[in-house]
């Protein structure tokens, strides 16, 4: 394994910022977000995780999927596939693991989502291992680890006099600086781990479907969408056509898709006004069943990477680890 010094890394990142679009954790008015940076000086190094996951760089909050031009009887549809190559630096293992879940739906299941997959192909991920887990992190309980390179192209881990570089993919190798790197002497330090939280197996979930727990737990839920929007794996969206300014005699529209969340009241409402998930308990239950039962059943991966963002962002302390504890406990009482 190779070693890059602190100054070597800064020079390399400056170079990347010049050559391509470099996205990295940045302090935006006091809020840490993945945003384009002009140089390595813009990058925040000491952090647990940015407020929003790196998901937004691949599956943005709003995306134009096509434009529609109507002139007389003529209708023209224009596809708007994203272009431009990007490098994202400072990706955490939990976020990269989120791509297992996102890819399962958008890339590995027909129909393939061209917007998402194009961004995935055009973007290289440089991971940054966590030296220790944050207070609410539980990645080790959902199959990950603070230094797990899954989904990365390069993986960096802080060592005494710089960063150890692990090359994961060819895309990653192509990014490496042209300077000669030293060989790393010694071992990479192991991250400090939190105690694991129980991870109820899939079969533990269905028997709890009608338990009173869901309504009780959800009573304090505000039905906002923070948990879904900060989540590295939540991928629900809504699609709508909206008008754009147009010349006289023609009409111009765009089709956009925007994040949506099953916690929101109208998410499940159908034509005519009926809402099969009108109760908050039903909506919250869906959120957790989706993560640990429906999604693995339908697509394979568990839709939680243990990043802990929802735990930290929820204004009323609805805690996914508490739910995992509760389901485990319920399953032990009534297997």
């Amino acid at each position: 394994m190779q070693l890059i010094s602190h100054s070597g890394l800064a020079t390399w990142l400056d170079h990347l910022a010049q050559e391509t679009t470099l996205i990295a954790p940045r302090n935006v008015d006091g809020v840490l977000l993945y945003r384009p940076v002009q140089s390595s000086g813009d990058i925040v190094w000491d952090f647990v995780r940015p407020v929003l996951s790196v998901k937004e760089a691949f599956f943005p909050a709003t995306e134009r999927v096509l434009t529609i031009e109507k002139t007389g009887q003529q209708i023209r549809l224009n596809e708007t596939v994203p272009d431009g190559e990007r490098v994202i630096f400072g990706v955490r293992s939990c976020d990269a693991r989120g791509f297992l879940a996102m890819d399962a739906l958008f890339a590995n299941t027909e129909p393939v989502d061209v917007y998402y997959t194009t961004r995935r192909e055009n973007t290289a991920l440089i991971g940054l291992s966590c030296n220790e887990m944050g207070e609410t992190c539980f990645c080790t309980s959902t199959g990950g680890a603070p230094d797990d390179p899954t989904g990365m192209d390069l993986m960096l881990t802080e060592v005494d006099d710089g960063y150890a570089i692990q090359v994961i993919t060819e895309k990653g190798a192509a990014l490496l600086p042209e300077i000669t790197l030293q060989e790393l002497a010694g071992e990479i330090p192991q991250p400090v781990l939190n105690d694991p939280v129980p991870f109820p197996p899939m079969e533990a979930w269905p028997p709890q479907f009608n338990d009173a727990y869901w309504a009780d737990m959800a009573e304090r839920c505000l039905s906002c969408r923070i948990c879904a929007y900060v989540c590295p794996t939540c991928r629900c969206f809504d699609v709508r056509d909206e008008p754009l300014p147009a010349e006289n005699g023609s009409q111009h529209f765009e089709r956009i898709r925007c994040w949506d969340s099953c916690a929101g009241e109208v998410y499940r409402q159908i034509a005519g006004g009926h809402n099969p998930r009108a109760a908050k308990g039903d909506r919250m239950r869906n959120r957790f069943f989706c993560k640990f039962y429906y999604y693995p059943e339908q697509y394979g991966p568990v839709a939680c990477t243990g990043c802990g963002r929802c735990v930290d962002a929820c204004p009323v302390n609805i805690d996914i680890t508490e739910v995992m504890h509760a389901v485990q406990r319920l399953a032990e009482v009534e297997p």
Binding site: D29, L52, L222, C224, R225, I226, Y229, P315
Partner: peptide
Amino acid sequence: LSQFDRCIRCYACRQA
């Protein structure tokens, strides 16, 4: 504008 730019329309402000 720079403040509103960060908004993700999670509607937490409204819901709370």
